[in-house]
Amino acid sequence: MAEILFFHLQSRPLEQVLPTILDRALARGQKVVVEVSSRERMSAVDDHLWTYADESFLPHVTAMEADAARNPIVLTTEAHNPNAAQVRICADGVRIPDALQDYERVVLIFDGDDPEALDAARADWKKAKASGHAASYWQQDEAGRWEKKA
C-alpha cells in the first residue's frame, strides 16, 4: 500500500517546497510524477524548476515530451504515470488518484489559504485512512519548516 503524505502549505508556496521534495525523492533513487491542474501551471512549474537555484539541477520534462518515459521527474496534467514513477505528487488542487497501486508514496500538497483545497484535502485524508493507507499530515510553521501533526 502506498504511503500518503499531506503537506499543508501556510508560509511558503508550492514553488519553494517542491524542489526539496523532489530532491529527496531523487536521493532515494525514486522516479516522480508531478500532477498539476492546468497546462499553464505545468509550464510555470517547469520554468521554475530550471531556475529555482543556481547551484542545483532537477532533471525533468513535461509529459508532452517524447522522452518523458526515460526521465526521473515528469510534470503532467493527467492522472497517468508516464515514467513508471514510484512517487506521485498531487499539487495545485489535484486530488489523490483512486489508483494508488503503482506508487510507494503519494504526496498531496495543498494551499492552507484556500478553503476548497482544505475541504478536498480533508476528504482525501478520510478516504486514505478508510482504505487502510499509512497517512501522515505535515504543516508548515512560521519559518516554513514541516511539523508532523498526525
Rank of each mutant, 00 (worst) to 15 (best):
M1S: 13
M1W: 03
A2C: 06
E3W: 00
I4R: 00
L5A: 05
L5K: 09
F7A: 02
L9A: 07
Q10W: 10
Q10K: 14
R12V: 06
P13S: 08
L14Q: 06
Q16R: 11
V17H: 12
L18R: 11
P19A: 02
I21V: 13
I21F: 06
I21N: 05
R24Q: 12
A25I: 03
A27T: 13
R28H: 08
Q30N: 11
K31L: 04
V34D: 06
V36I: 08
S38K: 06
S38Y: 05
E40G: 12
E40W: 03
R41C: 04
M42H: 08
A44G: 12
D46H: 14
D46M: 11
D47H: 14
H48W: 15
T51C: 11
A53Q: 10
A53C: 10
A53V: 06
E55I: 09
F57W: 12
F57N: 10
L58D: 07
P59W: 02
T62N: 14
T62Y: 03
A63L: 05
M64V: 08
M64K: 15
M64E: 15
M64G: 15
A66K: 15
A68Q: 10
A69W: 01
R70V: 00
N71A: 09
N71I: 13
N71H: 15
I73G: 11
I73R: 03
V74M: 08
V74D: 09
T76F: 02
T76Q: 11
T77K: 05
E78P: 01
H80Q: 11
H80N: 14
P82C: 07
N83Q: 03
A84Y: 03
A84Q: 13
A84L: 06
A85S: 04
Q86A: 13
Q86N: 02
V87P: 13
I89R: 01
I89K: 01
G93C: 02
G93M: 00
V94E: 10
I96T: 13
I96G: 05
D98M: 08
D98C: 07
L100S: 08
Q101T: 15
Y103T: 14
E104I: 11
E104M: 11
V106Y: 05
L108R: 05
L108G: 02
D111M: 00
D111I: 01
D114A: 00
D114H: 03
P115T: 00
A120G: 05
A120Q: 14
A121F: 01
R122K: 13
A123W: 01
A123H: 12
W125E: 03
A128D: 10
A128F: 00
A130H: 12
A130K: 13
S131C: 05
S131H: 11
G132K: 04
H133D: 02
H133R: 10
A134W: 08
A134T: 14
A134Q: 13
S136G: 10
Y137E: 04
Y137D: 07
Q139D: 03
Q140A: 00
Q140T: 01
D141P: 11
E142S: 11
E142F: 04
A143C: 10
A143H: 10
E147W: 12
E147V: 14
K148I: 11
A150L: 04
